[in-house]
Write a protein that binds this DNA or RNA. Structure first.
Length: 423
RNA sequence: CGGGAUGUAGCUUAGUUGGUAAAGCGCCAGGCUGGGGGUCUGGAGACCCAGGGUUCGAGUCCCUGCAUCCCGACCA
């Protein structure tokens, strides 16, 4: 991608209302643009990051055999009346949208009310169970207060998986499988060190709930981390909402020592049991011919929120940084040339084309009229892990300068050594 | 939904006891530059959030509304 062609621009100034780090940096880098409070548009570089996160999640969901679907974003009022969630006093984040005539629809904030009746068409007997179905889709929640940039919006991208079982024991087994997949997701996103499996209230639908909380200075939740578990190399915490000082014990180790931390909830998983299958009468036939409610689990993970969390966790004063595999590009190439005829430009351009042909994703800063300083600052802001500078100075030694955005280490390398390094 | 703060050029802001709007950045044209948002000259760009009110006169004072951010409540 040529930087001269990229329609987004970086900005030196933060928007006056960008109080949170993610809102400030993602907007300054031109990754996202705020449409209104809690609602963002994703621009070319930001969309690549969002898609990369999405792909990590998708691969781990596929790996455990769950099947990707794409459920409708609108749904009929009746489905929500069936579960009692149409009533704003019961469920205040549901957007009610008018349809033709007297009809009213819901803009889906979650999809139990869609997938449960849907599965009535397909689940007949115990032979059809168990299985999992997931989707990655925009969710709409009428939050009374949107906040913290893309961390808590009224419109956001979420992966939600629903699982269907004959009994609680099979749900318990599958729940563990999903936990394993989630662990893998946090490892791949480079967040494992900061992520704690957090025991939380089940809300109004279940006594069971686990959250994946990522420790962040500006986290909106407070968790109590089990010190005992940490000593055993386990990341276990209790959400403040169910923590009783002096009483609560670590459910994994039995330990009684905790340390308090601020964290952001990246994922939340629930054992639904028959909470939704009962009202929708989603049942299956057992081996003895009798009928029983399907047992369900649901497993959410905030894709766009993870992008915000990664920004909060990784960005430095100079701009964005991303874990490997998540950045919008693999490298950012800057020729320090005054004209496109100079060797430093032609060598850099040739390198760019070679890397692109080899499947690397690169930004090439062909904006040679811009000052050197502004182009270096842009390289830092845009967040590529590697920056390659080709200048008359480095060319004298027939070398390129390679700088690591994370370690700030700089190395002069011969072009062929550099190319070899990448293969 | 309660409380607080803020709305002035594309962006960030200044604007005195009320007298008809200023700067930096960005943008456009042209120089000089070239390893960290460089520099000089010239230029374009604002119904001062909206609607009422007070006043000879309102960016400025008053009322109402809207928007945004923050705190709280809320958060499958």
């Amino acid at each position: 991608m040529l930087l001269s062609q990229l329609f987004t621009k970086t900005s030196k100034d933060a928007a006056h209302d960008a109080e949170s780090k993610n809102a400030e940096f993602l907007a300054r880098a031109g990754y996202v643009s705020k449409t209104m409070a809690g609602v963002y548009s994703y621009l070319p570089l930001g969309l690549r990051v969002l898609r990369s996160i999405e792909q990590v999640v998708r691969e781990e969901m596929d790996r455990i055999g769950s099947q990707e679907v794409w459920l409708s974003a609108l749904s009929p009022k009746e489905n929500w009346e069936t579960t009692g969630r149409w009533d704003p006093k019961v469920f205040d984040v549901l957007f009610h949208v008018p349809g033709a005539g007297d009809q009213e629809y819901a803009l889906n904030p979650t999809h139990e009310e869609i997938i449960t009746p849907l599965m009535k068409q397909y689940i007949r007997s115990y032979r059809d169970l168990p299985f999992g179905a997931y989707q990655i889709q925009t969710k709409f929640r009428n939050e009374l207060r949107a906040k913290s940039g893309i961390l808590r919006g009224r419109e956001f991208l979420m992966k939600d998986l629903y699982s269907f079982h004959t009994d609680q024991a099979d749900l318990d087994r599958y729940y563990e499988v999903v936990m394993g997949a989630y662990d893998q997701i946090f490892v791949r996103l480079g967040l494992a060190e900061k992520t704690y499996l957090t025991f939380a209230s089940g809300g109004s639908f279940s006594q069971y709930s686990h959250e994946y909380q990522v420790v962040l200075e500006k986290g909106e939740d407070t968790i109590f981390i089990s010190i005992e578990a940490e000593k055993q190399g386990k990341h276990i915490a209790i959400n403040k909402e169910i923590f009783k000082p002096g009483e609560t014990k670590c459910p994994v180790t039995g330990g009684t020592e905790f340390r308090e931390a601020k964290a952001s909830e990246a994922a939340n998983i629930f054992k639904l049991s028959n909470k939704f299958s009962a009202p929708f009468e989603l049942q299956y036939t057992k081996e003895d011919g009798s009928r029983s409610d399907v047992i369900m689990g649901c497993y959410g993970i905030g894709i766009s929120r993870l992008m915000g969390i990664l920004t909060e966790a990784c960005a430095d004063e100079a701009g964005l940084r991303w874990p490997s595999g998540i950045a919008p590009v693999d490298m950012h190439i800057v020729p320090l040339a005054k004209t496109a005829d100079e060797e430093s430009y032609t060598v850099a351009k040739a390198l760019y084309e070679k890397l692109m042909k080899a499947g690397k994703r690169c930004l090439f800063d062909d904006r040679i009229d811009n000052s050197v300083g502004s182009r270096m600052a842009d390289a830092d802001m845009l967040g590529s892990a590697l920056r390659i500078v080709v200048s008359p100075k480095t060319l004298k030694e027939k070398k390129l300068e390679v700088k690591n955005r994370w370690t700030a280490e700089m190395a002069l390398m011969e072009e062929k050594d550099f190319s070899n390094l990448l293969t």
